[in-house]
Simulated scan of single mutants.
Amino acid sequence: ATLEAIAQALFKSWFVDFDPVRAKLEGRAPEGMDEATAALFPDGFEASELGLVPRGWRVLPVGDAVDAVGGATPDTKNPSYWEPAIHCWTTPKDLSGIAAPVLLDTERKLSDQGLAKIGSGALPVGTLLLSSRAPIGYLALAQVPLAINQGYIAMLPGGLLPPLYMLFWCRQNMENIKGRANGSTFMEISKKAFRPISALVPSPELVQAFAGVAGVLFDKLIENEKQAQTLATLRDTLLPRLISGQLRLPIPV
């Protein structure tokens, strides 16, 4: 939680409050960064549809800044789509109980035939998952290649704004995202409604600098989550054996 909070605070300072730009505008050196990083920030603002933004940064529909795709559910009554279980396949249920915004595994898996039924196919490690319904707003970075069901909008690596940047962008803009949802049975944000949302796009060099700093924090976060999962598996394996007496520990004398 601490690592995630540090990255979120950095995102807000750089890309929401524009602290380094304000510092340079006032003739001060931006705090907490080296000269090379500070040089990536402009020293003034300009008008845009989002209000005053740092000079030279662009405002684009988010769909132009990232590749956003959806998924599907193969026929659950057709066992050939699910056996042998090879490819990770996720629904928003997988994100409901996670402690950190990283997905290490999925409850269900698809066969080769099942994967072929999903137009977006297997998405790469690093893809950002945003649950688009029931409920809207779960977020996680995939740590395994996986396919998704229709309850997601997935943002792929390789766009103008990388998935790690978009994780914090979505958090910052979640009320706007939810405000574009509609539906009679349950609220849902479609890809068509999501893609036109305006996003502020800094220079590629600055986005890369943020991804470098936040990436170090998230690498540590991911390692912590893997270790926690290993310990939980060990606990779940050993505890029943200890309680039943199947496994006994030597008592020191």
Score class of each variant (00 low, 15 high):
159 G>C: 05
95 L>E: 05
84 P>S: 08
162 P>H: 02
117 K>Y: 14
168 F>Q: 06
147 A>W: 11
103 L>G: 02
158 G>Y: 06
99 A>V: 14
88 C>V: 08
97 G>P: 02
95 L>K: 05
135 P>C: 12
171 R>F: 01
117 K>G: 00
116 A>S: 14
159 G>M: 01
99 A>G: 15
116 A>I: 11
84 P>Q: 07
172 Q>F: 01
114 G>V: 15
123 L>W: 04
168 F>K: 12
87 H>W: 14
143 Q>D: 13
105 D>F: 08
132 S>M: 10
153 I>P: 02
127 T>K: 13
134 A>F: 02
143 Q>G: 10
164 L>M: 00
146 L>Y: 00
91 T>Y: 01
172 Q>G: 11
84 P>L: 09
139 L>T: 08
155 M>L: 15
130 L>E: 05
113 Q>P: 07
95 L>M: 15
140 A>N: 09
109 K>H: 08
121 G>V: 09
125 V>P: 00
125 V>Q: 09
164 L>I: 14
119 G>K: 10
161 L>D: 02
100 A>D: 12
102 V>P: 03
95 L>F: 14
112 D>P: 10
112 D>M: 14
170 C>W: 03
97 G>I: 03
144 V>P: 11
162 P>M: 13
123 L>N: 07
157 P>H: 08
142 A>I: 10
128 L>I: 09
135 P>R: 14
132 S>H: 03
89 W>T: 13
165 Y>K: 10
139 L>F: 00
92 P>Q: 09
127 T>G: 06
94 D>W: 01
125 V>G: 04
87 H>C: 08
133 R>T: 12
123 L>R: 06
131 S>K: 15
95 L>T: 01
88 C>Y: 11
148 I>F: 01
122 A>Y: 08
141 L>G: 10
137 G>S: 05
157 P>I: 13
99 A>M: 13
125 V>N: 06
